[in-house]
Design a protein around this nucleic acid. Structure first.
Lengths: 250, 250
DNA sequence: CAGCTCATGTGAACGGCTTTTACATGAGCC
DNA sequence: GGCTCATGTAAAAGCCGTTCACATGAGCTG
């Protein structure tokens, strides 16, 4: 392998050899540490071992670095959502809830990306590529919502998939930014953010007429994940889950 | 009236006479203009017509000014939520939805306060008074949720009020920060943020077993806001609202 | 290999911000 | 009138973002 600049770091010559990537990595670490607002262009340069002016050879300004990170974040976000959706396997509702969990997991495990994506105060329309990346990530949720909407139990009006997607996104983002981040998560909750979101989504889906009991292992194919009672009696308790999606009420 | 410093502004002497308040107002305007991150201590001082060092006689540092604004914001927020809740009149569900709308209205109409409260990146535990103010504002939602939870239709398991409050908060905050702010609201939505949140909350409440049809004017007292069918047949469509809470699906 | 060229990095400098310090002012009180 | 202390100022240190003229050397060209 041609090793231009012996791999890691060590003695740099005049030229760094991989500054752009090094800056992105440094910035990522700094944002994780001190937030998107506290992050400093000069600090990133220092961390990469170059002068304060060097970054300007690779990014027009500080905002462009930030927006590059946000874009990268949306790409990884999309990948994780896609993976967790797994094309709706083993069944649509299970996969749908998994996407919600993946949303929170990303916010929790990649605070720097999440901050750059949603808390950096970047002008939304500044970078078209950034907006497109965000749109693709949202597309995963929308696609999942479409599959879910197509499964509305018979006798129930079918909700617009786009609306469902927006609802799910707002729930996920709301829980993530209020309760699931390093800093704002100080509030003492009666349950974990994951559980909170899961219950929220389950109640919401039930409100749309979906059966939301915890079937042990419905080995069958996708249709019917809708048990017959859904379209006959009450699509809502009593019965079904003992105590609803939030465990036993004491 | 003793007019110390002729009311508005005009020729100040050496002493301003009302600097603290002037700084708060100036900061509020600046945050509304340029965001919580873009706001500058020096700018506020300039706008108040004093030197850059003067603000330090009233605030330990920039963060304390910001956190004062956030605290004031939570107080006004609480007042507005309380007013819109109106002790649950004319009926609990109507009042509950009104609280959701008030949440969005505040985010839209007071972007500066909202930014200071939720987007300033202030360390949550820094200012106990700030945390307490936030807690009181949330208390309004929690109290409303408690009243609502007490009305769960018979035969339906009663959800924990705290959980409901957290759910409602996360929905409101999610919609507000994703779609209802000056900047991030660029996404073209199929419906207004208000409608989006209203539908979301209605579906959620339906998922908890609440009847969510639009009764024209149930003049009676609070009980029974729950029409008899709620506990007899399907607590969910078909029937009730023509098309669900999101209007006619075309 | 010599030499050219251009991407990449440097140092210095400008203006702005935050915060501190010593000093100035004057409002309120005796 | 004179004291005192809260309140404001000027100046300075240290940081940041950004720009510009200049330095370096990687890679091509012959």
């Amino acid at each position: 392998m041609s090793w231009r600049k012996e791999q890691g770091r060590a003695e740099r010559g005049y030229h760094h050899g991989n500054l752009k990537e090094a800056l992105l990595q440094a910035a990522l670490g700094l944002i994780a540490e001190k937030g998107a607002a506290g992050f400093t262009f000069a600090d990133a340069a220092r961390m990469a071992g170059v002068s304060a002016a060097a970054p300007y050879r690779h990014f027009r300004d500080r905002d462009e670095l930030l927006s590059s990170i946000a874009q990268r974040g949306f790409e990884q976000f999309e990948a994780r959502l896609t993976a967790s959706w797994d094309d709706g396997r083993p069944d649509t509702i299970t996969a749908f809830e998994r996407v919600g969990k993946a949303y929170l997991a990303f916010a929790r495990e990649e605070p720097a990306f999440y901050a750059a994506m949603f808390e950096s105060g970047l002008p939304t329309d500044a970078n078209p590529a950034l907006m497109a990346a965000g749109e693709r990530a949202f597309g995963v949720i929308r696609a999942a919502a479409e599959r879910l909407a197509a499964l509305t139990p018979p006798g129930t009006p079918r909700p617009p998939a786009m609306m469902m997607a927006l609802h799910i996104w707002s729930m996920s983002h709301g829980v993530a930014s209020l309760f699931s981040r390093g800093d704002g998560a100080r509030r003492k909750l009666p349950m974990s953010p994951d559980e909170l979101l899961e219950a929220e989504v389950l109640i919401y889906l039930r409100g749309l007429g979906f059966p939301t009991d915890r079937r042990p292992a419905a080995k069958g194919a996708e249709p019917p994940p809708v048990p017959p009672e859904a379209s006959s009696g009450s699509g809502v308790p009593p019965g079904g889950t003992p105590g609803g999606p939030w465990g036993k009420p004491k």
